[in-house]
Amino acid sequence: MGENSQTLDKERRDFIKKVLKGTIGGSLLLVIPAGLRSGIEVPVQIPGIRDQEYDLNKKRFAFVVDITSCIGCGSCCVADKREYKVPDYHYRTWVERYLKDFDDKIYVDSPNGGLDGYQEPRKDLDKEIRDTFFVPKLCNMCNDPPCVQVCPVGATFRSPDGFVLVDEKHCVGCAYCIQACPYSVRFLNPVTHSADKCTWCYHRVRKGLLPACVNVCPTGARKFGDVNDKESEVSKILSGPGVFTVLRKAMGTSPSLHYMGARREVI
């Protein structure tokens, strides 16, 4: 097994080298990314990716957040911070707590982005609460992303498989994309001085792993998968009769992040 995987690794590395040296254009579509660090038992969480040729044009991923399942534990926020060592006071993902009183007034808070969990009820409100729920937030992976439109240098882009990514080596750090994002998921990373944001854990997905936040969610409030794979959970959910919404539809961004059970007050 060991020897076998070593030769596979070598072949894969040679292949990548060849592709990078030569004409990358068409062949980049089929590149297999570098494998996981050796010797780890890792289940295949997204089938059809690991150790296979990956066609950027054949994949279409979607993220579903089920608000009716979120318990506001903040596991996702902790996982995200650990996966990326996100600098303090900057958030790739966060969880908001909504409260609605009997006058339909909405009160929202998200202390430290939910990173420390919600240990206390809100003490500053003296209202009878009618409805209360948690809303996890992350990159909407728009099909028509305003951040990509405004980037002056092409440092943020939408890959053919639908991920809006940041080229950290090309970004000039002008923060225009941060202004343009209607969801405020972007920030200027104080360590790299480049724009940074949630990538739906692209590097994990390309290794057949679920995004870190989806992987740790104890109640399945965060779901992720390939829409083109008819067997995937996300594909089944999105084909079903459930009511789905996207955030800020009027912005015309066409997000690939869908919410289930989101009240109309959720922005």
């Binding site: 990314p33 092409g154 090309h170």
Partner: peptide, 13 residues
């Protein structure tokens, strides 16, 4: 692949 550095996809992956 578009108005960006195609290799950046691979680096991210």
């Amino acid at each position: 692949l578009g108005h960006y550095r195609a290799k950046a996809i691979l680096e991210e992956a």
